[in-house]
């Protein structure tokens, strides 16, 4: 079932001829939404205990994420694409909260939905991108890409599916590993060096951006 998605997505991308991009994108989004919703309801009925609330909210939030992700990829207007991406990030933030990783949920909203998306929109609006043109699709390359993607997906699913819920945190892990306090203690305790190196990384990115895009400088 899962491996149908990449195939479906590929054929819903803006396409010359039979289907216009709008119809493709909306149909795909609707199909993804309905099937996801049915899966959520079915699971809720099957489980039917206290955990079902979390499971249903997980499915509803991931429904938002998947539907908007479809719109991001299949749309041709970059501004709509960026706006849909906000929906995807918000959905994922919700999933983090359901999984009791409140900190990452907040970070997801502030960083991705807030800062990075605003940056995207700035760039999109400043450079005045033309509407993306519909492309012809198919050929050996496309088929090879689909085959590779599906093969990789099948392998990952085969490897991870039997594990199910058996993966456990390492012994000695904090009881609430994703609370703000635990993250802070980890950052300034065992992960102090990586934390400092991350600031070095930001410095490199900053200097690099200035070198590559700043005023022309010659000696």
């Amino acid at each position: 079932m899962t491996s149908v998605w990449p195939l479906l997505l590929y054929y819903l991308l803006p396409l010359v001829g039979l289907w216009t991009y709008r119809r493709g994108g909306r149909t795909g989004t609707l199909a993804a939404g309905i099937s996801w919703f049915l899966a959520a309801v079915a699971l809720g009925v099957v489980i039917g205990d206290a955990r079902s609330f979390a499971v249903i909210s997980f499915y509803l939030l991931s429904l938002v994420a998947v539907m908007t992700a479809f719109l991001v990829v299949t749309g041709t207007n970059p501004v709509y694409g960026a706006l849909s991406l906000i929906g995807t990030f918000t959905g994922i933030a919700g999933v983090f909260v359901v999984l009791q990783c409140e900190f990452f949920g907040i970070v997801q909203v502030i960083l991705y939905a807030g800062a990075i998306l605003v940056l995207y929109l700035f760039v999109v609006m400043m450079v005045d991108l033309p509407k993306e043109n519909a492309q012809k699709r198919g050929g050996v390359r496309g088929i090879a890409a689909i085959a590779t993607g599906l093969g990789l997906l099948a392998l990952v699913v085969k490897a991870l599916a039997p594990l199910g819920m058996r993966l456990q945190p390492a012994a000695g892990a904090s009881a609430e590993p994703y609370s703000v306090r635990a993250v802070g203690t980890a950052l300034f305790g065992p992960y102090l060096v990586p934390f400092e190196v991350a600031s070095l990384l930001l410095l490199v990115a900053l200097v690099g951006a200035i070198v590559l895009s700043g005023r022309e400088r010659e000696s």
């Binding site: 190196v197 070095l200 990384l201 490199v204 990115a205 200097v207 690099g208 070198v211 590559l212």
Partner: peptide
């Protein structure tokens, strides 16, 4: 990553 980012530039 520090190595890669520097070499890109």
């Amino acid at each position: 990553e520090v190595l890669s980012l520097s070499t890109y530039v």
